[in-house]
């Protein structure tokens, strides 16, 4: 049970609690050790992964040099970097397009997923009727539907968007549906006692209860939207102007421009990481005041 402690606000993620080490009687040896470990962990959290990454890149570089590997098989990291800079004009254009498709697909997935989940929670009948379709869409591999989509849909952009959306919307739908159903039953009784109508129940109880579930779904959907966008573009193949990163990878592959392929690949990976970090941040900001997942325990 936590007592109220004004200092215990989640607004300050890193509490500088051990500033006055050894200054007062507050810390005994054991506590000091614990504080030191905590401080080390705080720094190591960032240093360790970076160090490992640097080590891996260094080893990659050495591997190429030691074994005399040709750049069209495996380029050195430096070459990838310089290609990235040299081709930034083309690559950034493609990145922008991939980002656009991913972002739009995610936005539509959020609207569609949450909207459908709310509809399901309001009407059992709607859930019975539509949830099989949602499941079928989800379990059918996107690579197998995508060719059809590009036959039926004229606009390449809309086709890509549709593919990315199909992949991204299900986790949002599934999680939000679950969240809307898991409102505390005593609170539901309370709503009944105070004669809340359907809309009030949704707004004051179900939607807030579903928020952590929705945000969990969003984290998954963000990555999936990117995957959907990339995979769909592979299927769509060459398509003249406006082309995303996946097309650049294909193109570089045909022309044996392996460094460029790596550069595009790195951009996709970085994009995925940024999307994940962004959705995690959104989740943290939305939940930090009240939800168990965002609480720090003593």
């Amino acid at each position: 049970m936590m007592a109220v402690d004004p200092a215990d606000s989640a607004a300050t993620p890193q509490t500088p609690m051990c500033e006055g080490r050894g200054t007062g009687p507050l810390f005994d040896a054991d506590e000091e050790r614990r504080a030191r470990r905590k401080r080390i962990e705080e720094v190591a959290k960032y240093i360790v992964p970076l160090a490992i990454l640097a080590l891996a890149i260094w080893y990659w570089d050495r591997l190429v040099v030691w074994n005399d590997i040709e750049p069209y098989i495996l380029p050195r990291p430096g070459l990838v970097l310089s290609t990235l800079i040299k081709d930034w004009g083309t690559l950034s254009q493609s990145l922008l397009i991939t980002l656009q498709i991913t972002g739009m697909a995610l936005a539509v997935a959020v609207i569609g997923g949450v909207g459908l989940a709310v509809l399901f929670s309001l009407s059992r009948f709607a859930e019975m009727s539509f949830s099989p379709f949602a499941v079928i869409l989800q379990v059918t591999p996107i690579v197998s539907i995508a060719p059809l989509i590009f036959i039926y849909i004229e606009s390449r952009m809309i086709g890509l968007l549709l593919c990315a959306w199909i992949v991204a919307f299900f986790p949002i739908l599934a999680n939000t549906t679950l969240g809307l159903k898991s409102a505390d039953h005593n609170l539901q009784d309370l709503m009944t006692i105070y004669k809340a109508n359907r809309w009030q129940r949704l707004r004051y109880l179900q939607l807030p209860s579903a928020l952590p579930y929705f945000l969990g779904g969003l984290k998954i959907a963000g990555g999936l939207a990117l995957i959907g966008a990339v995979v769909a573009e592979y299927v769509a193949g060459t398509g003249g102007i406006g082309t995303g990163l996946a097309f650049r990878i294909l193109e570089a592959g045909y022309r044996l421009q392996i460094p460029r392929m790596f550069a595009a690949l790195i951009l996709i990976a970085v994009t995925g990481v940024v999307i994940y970090a962004t959705t995690s941040l959104i989740s943290h900001l939305a939940l930090r005041k009240w939800h168990e997942s965002a609480l720090k325990r003593e």
Binding site: D184, D189, L190, I193, P208, H291
Partner: peptide
Amino acid sequence: LGVVFQEPTLMPWA
């Protein structure tokens, strides 16, 4: 009518 349950039954987000 006012009701108090066995659990505090508060909305954690409020």
